[in-house]
């Protein structure tokens, strides 16, 4: 099995519902976003073109972050999901710098001491924060706890435009494989030979 995601840029409306769903699912501290929607604008008024690009960890087949990690904290599961073992991470940020997509976040010292409403953590933050550690690198896990239960990642589940599709890339009959085949799905920065598991459709 090789899990991956297809993102249809024609469907994405830039509502950031995926961003919020991800934060809600993972309970990440302020300024830590595992997924977000970027805007890209070209041209000058009145001839303007705007594109929304949802981004997240691409769980690359040949992930530079896995290669450069000196401790083995960043590792890849059998199903292709790239994870960080927070107990092993030393916070050297070699992976952060090596990721061509800049989709890794370093949890600074003190980042878990304050929440969205100041130093007093909300009950939600009090429940979610214990799973994080300061001084380590964190990133999107494809909502691995949900995937292990047979569910889609939170961003896929919540997308109102069905712009995100999650599935098995190794199965030629899966929806993701068919979309890539029929619509000419392409990988971001394919010239870097990282073989991302996230494909985009135009």
């Amino acid at each position: 099995m090789h899990l991956g995601m297809v993102i249809d840029l024609k469907r994405c409306v830039g509502c950031q519902a995926c961003t919020v769903a991800c934060k809600s699912e993972n309970g990440t501290p302020p300024e830590v976003l595992f997924t977000k929607v970027l805007e890209q604008v070209a041209g000058e008024y009145p001839i303007i073109k705007k594109k929304f690009i949802p981004v997240l960890c691409n769980h690359c087949e040949d992930a530079p972050c896995v290669r450069v990690c000196p401790t083995g904290a960043t590792h890849k599961r059998e199903d292709g999901i790239v994870l960080v073992d927070h107990q092993k991470c030393i916070g050297c940020r070699a992976c952060y710098v090596a990721c061509p997509y800049k989709n890794r976040i370093f949890l600074q010292k003190g980042s878990l001491k304050k929440g969205y409403f100041g130093k007093q953590l909300t009950p939600f933050e009090q429940v979610k924060y214990p799973k994080w550690q300061e001084g380590v690198v964190v990133k999107c896990t494809f909502c691995v706890e949900r995937v292990d239960q047979g569910l889609d990642p939170a961003c896929v589940q919540t997308c109102p435009a069905d712009a995100r599709v999650f599935g098995d890339l190794s199965n030629p009959e899966s929806k993701v494989s068919r979309l890539i085949r029929q619509r000419g799905g392409y990988q971001p920065l394919s010239e870097d030979n990282t073989e991302p598991s996230v494909y985009y459709l135009e």
Binding site: P70, T71, I90
Partner: peptide, 25 residues
């Protein structure tokens, strides 16, 4: 300088684990 930079300096010894692929190690 490396120890001051590390997010978790107390685990610095783990940096020796993967010399097969990592230039840091």
């Amino acid at each position: 300088a490396h120890l001051l930079y590390l997010g978790r300096p107390e685990r610095f010894w783990r940096g020796l684990t993967k010399p097969g692929t990592s230039w840091v190690a």
